[in-house]
């Protein structure tokens, strides 16, 4: 039986009728058309489906849609404001910290959660926080650099 839930996704309110077994990843991708959230494994191992739930990074493939009723979700599509890229997105471009880009949405969101909590992370803290996000293109060194640079530029602008 479908159940009605309420969600705020990237600032927009939605009322949705969902099946009990629908994951948040499927809801975002198939029902809301937000395909920026990737699903590399659907079993909680790769991190590509990471979204922010009330600001915390979670694997959306492991979450049932019904379990996030009433919560605020941020996906990669919600990061740029008025067409202006988030400093993390900009830093990923500047450092070219991606090749195929399949891991990037999840990594950028996870990094955002990190910087929101800890605006000046050390390299070790970045590596530790992002270790649940796999990048098969192996650009980890660039990703660390991009996150570090984004932290600097956010601090300089006082942005969050």
């Amino acid at each position: 039986m479908p159940r009605t839930i309420h969600l705020t996704v990237n600032g927009h309110k939605h009322e949705l009728a969902v099946e009990d077994n629908l994951t948040l990843a499927s809801l975002l991708r198939h029902h809301l058309g937000l395909t920026g959230t990737k699903t590399g494994c659907e079993e909680g191992h790769c991190g590509s489906c990471t979204v922010l739930v009330n600001g915390s990074p979670l694997y959306s493939c492991l979450l049932l849609a019904t379990a996030v009723d009433g919560q605020a979700i941020t996906t990669i599509e919600g990061l740029a404001v008025d067409g202006k890229l988030h400093p993390l997105q900009q830093a990923f471009l500047d450092e070219e910290a991606l090749q195929c880009g399949y891991c990037s949405p999840g990594i950028i969101l996870n990094a955002k959660a990190l910087l929101d909590k800890n605006p000046h992370p050390t390299e070790d803290e970045i590596r530790y926080s992002l270790s649940g996000n796999l990048c098969r293109c192996g650009l980890y060194q660039r990703i660390v650099r991009a996150v570090t640079n984004a932290a600097h530029s956010m601090a300089a602008k006082g942005a969050r």
Partner: peptide, 18 residues
């Protein structure tokens, strides 16, 4: 700068499953 990257960091790039 790589021309394919902006769509990839904003979630606009369409992969086959998308």
């Amino acid at each position: 700068p790589r021309v394919d990257l902006p769509a990839k960091v904003t979630g606009k790039a369409l992969y086959a499953a998308d």
